[in-house]
Simulated scan of single mutants.
Amino acid sequence: MSAVARSILRRRELQRGIGRLCILKSVAALVPHRSLGSPEAPCSRYGSTLAPAESSEVQSLLHSNDVIIGTTGNTIPKETKSSHQESTTYTKKDEAEHPPDRTFEEMVVLFREIEASFPKSLGEDRWYLVLIATLTYASDPAHIADLYSYLISQPKYSTSESRKALMRRIREALVKLVCLIGVCKPITAIFRIDDVEKEEDRDYTFSRDGWQADEKNLERGKGFLGKIYRHNMPRNDEKFIAHKDFAELTAHIFPFGTAWITYNITYGLYLSDHTILDPFDTEVVALCGILIQNLESVTAFHLRGARRLGMTSEDVEGLHACCEKIARFCRVRVDKVPRVADIEHEVAWE
């Protein structure tokens, strides 16, 4: 590749990262941040600190006549706008179909609304779990870092130890979401939290150190799953008879047989570990993380499971209402899922 071609590619790469830098500068006074948006240590679009040479290039581009600020706050090269006018000119229809991402100020309004509307009978320290479970899936996972920044600005988290305890709860919620929504978005949320986390607030504990898929893990998984499903589980297991990668009966390992992934991984490794998040915490994460995906059957299972764990129907309906508010905010649909009233007749154990 010629030197001219390398120069053009390098310039375009930097231009793509400028939009995020501009936005971060505008909210730097509101959000505690270790490096992003700081003129002394600007960051790349992946969150890592730029080298001095890169930093100089970014600063020069920010003040260059070669870039302009588009209607959505992104930087657009002038030459691109003139040569591809149709693709970079935004109309009201374009914004309706492809609206810009939510701002930090808009996120704060949502955080306060969910905190205020969360069922008080479920306690004061669970409302943000609803946001973690839903925003990680339905929005940009970077907004979990916004939530973290909002939380640590409160007096309750004024000490380093309290912020470490908070981080353990946030991290555990994200770990549990891996089995519910996949790994990529929770990992992205962790990357963005790492961008704003102060060194003195870092928690280096490892909750699953020494974990093994042994009989103890299996029994723990079966125990918690039994509280959620009870007599309904055999009927669910029948669905996997022809799909054994999901639920193989491993009699050669465990003589009594088990749906391996469900019992050992989904519940054994993830959902039945209550060392950081208790059963109610876990079910808030599970129910909301599933409901926001607009999944009818599995949402019904966990509406029923939340009631079987001891949540009142009013509490469960309150969680559902919070998820609906977040869904509207994130512009996603949750119109296929049942309400708690629809499954109330199934709650009884037998």
Score class of each variant (00 low, 15 high):
residue 237 D to Y: 05
residue 167 M to C: 04
residue 196 V to D: 12
residue 215 E to Q: 14
residue 207 S to T: 09
residue 249 L to I: 11
residue 168 R to Y: 01
residue 191 F to I: 07
residue 253 I to D: 15
residue 224 F to S: 01
residue 234 P to R: 00
residue 218 L to C: 10
residue 175 V to E: 10
residue 238 E to Y: 02
residue 183 V to T: 02
residue 182 G to A: 10
residue 245 D to K: 15
residue 218 L to H: 01
residue 168 R to L: 05
residue 215 E to N: 15
residue 230 R to W: 03
residue 212 Q to V: 07
residue 235 R to A: 02
residue 226 G to D: 01
residue 254 F to A: 10
residue 242 A to R: 11
residue 170 I to M: 03
residue 260 W to P: 04
residue 186 P to M: 00
residue 210 G to F: 13
residue 174 L to A: 05
residue 184 C to D: 12
residue 187 I to R: 11
residue 218 L to S: 03
residue 166 L to K: 05
residue 209 D to Y: 12
residue 169 R to W: 03
residue 237 D to A: 15
residue 255 P to D: 06
residue 241 I to R: 13
residue 182 G to Q: 09
residue 194 D to I: 00
residue 240 F to P: 08
residue 170 I to Q: 07
residue 165 A to R: 04
residue 253 I to Y: 14
residue 220 R to A: 07
residue 257 G to C: 01
residue 179 C to D: 13
residue 255 P to W: 05
residue 196 V to L: 10
residue 181 I to S: 03
residue 210 G to Y: 05
residue 196 V to P: 06
residue 167 M to E: 04
residue 211 W to L: 12
residue 255 P to G: 12
residue 210 G to T: 08
residue 170 I to F: 02
residue 242 A to N: 15
residue 234 P to G: 01
residue 249 L to P: 09
residue 229 Y to M: 12
residue 263 Y to M: 09
residue 223 G to M: 13
residue 228 I to E: 00
residue 240 F to I: 05
residue 252 H to W: 15
residue 261 I to T: 10
residue 215 E to Y: 13
residue 254 F to N: 10
residue 228 I to G: 06
residue 236 N to M: 15
residue 167 M to L: 06
residue 203 D to L: 03
residue 208 R to S: 14
residue 184 C to A: 14
residue 188 T to P: 05
residue 205 T to L: 04
residue 190 I to R: 04
residue 247 A to Q: 12
